[in-house]
Simulated assay, not measured.
Amino acid sequence: MASIPRRFLVHEITVEDYKGDSSKGPVYGPPRTVRCLVDEQTRAVRSAGGEQVTSTSTAYAGPEERTAPPLSRVTLPSGRVTTVILTKNRDGRGLGTPNHVEFQLE
């Protein structure tokens, strides 16, 4: 299976990639719109550093979307602004599962 069918990507989020810190605070890249499916469900996940943190939302997007570094800023359809804990490329490699990118959000 190639990717999540486009008809299931019913939400749009705005992603601003985290670029680092400056003397004035975090620096973000330009905003980009990502079509996705947002699942607002609280669960425990592991961050890139290995610590267990709470994710309040997950966004599933097509495999053509690039990942976002941890701490990237995301605006959800509700208007709530959150940050990326971790992004994962999910490649089913012919197993019948849709290939996609998963954004785990605080």
Rank of each mutant, 00 (worst) to 15 (best):
T42D: 03
I4M: 15
L105R: 00
R93L: 14
E40H: 04
G50M: 01
T42S: 13
R90W: 13
D17G: 04
V10W: 05
G50I: 02
G92N: 13
Y28I: 12
Q52A: 07
F103Y: 14
M1H: 12
T83F: 12
G96K: 03
V53F: 13
P69L: 10
L95I: 03
K19F: 05
P30C: 05
K24M: 11
I13G: 00
V74S: 06
T75I: 04
K24H: 13
V38I: 09
D39Y: 05
L71W: 12
S55R: 06
T33Q: 10
P98A: 12
P30W: 02
K88G: 08
R93S: 10
E12N: 11
F103D: 00
S3V: 01
L105G: 03
S72D: 09
R80N: 13
S47L: 07
D17S: 09
S57F: 00
S47Y: 01
K24S: 15
K19L: 15
R6S: 13
D91Y: 01
V10M: 09
R73E: 11
A44G: 01
F8P: 05
F8A: 14
S47D: 14
E51W: 09
T87I: 07
A44P: 03
F8C: 11
D39W: 04
R43Y: 09
L9G: 06
G79K: 08
R66A: 10
L37G: 06
A68R: 08
V84Y: 02
P98Q: 13
T82A: 01
P69H: 02
G29P: 05
R35Q: 15
G94R: 13
G92I: 06
S57Y: 00
T83C: 07
P70R: 04
S23G: 13
R7K: 03
F8L: 14
L95A: 15
P77V: 14
R6G: 00
A59V: 03
P5V: 09
L105W: 02
F8V: 03
C36A: 11
G92D: 12
G94S: 08
A61R: 02
E65C: 14
N99K: 02
V45Y: 07
I13S: 00
N99V: 04
V15H: 01
Q41K: 07
A48D: 11
L37V: 07
Y18C: 05
L71G: 07
P5N: 04
V27W: 06
K88S: 14
V34C: 02
T58F: 02
V74N: 01
A61G: 15
E102W: 05
L37T: 06
T58V: 07
I4D: 09
Y18E: 04
E16P: 03
A59M: 05
I13D: 03
N89F: 05
L76F: 01
T97P: 03
T58A: 01
Q52K: 15
P77T: 10
K24P: 00
P26S: 13
T14Y: 07
L76K: 12
H100W: 04
T87G: 00
T83K: 01
T82Y: 02
Q104K: 03
M1R: 11
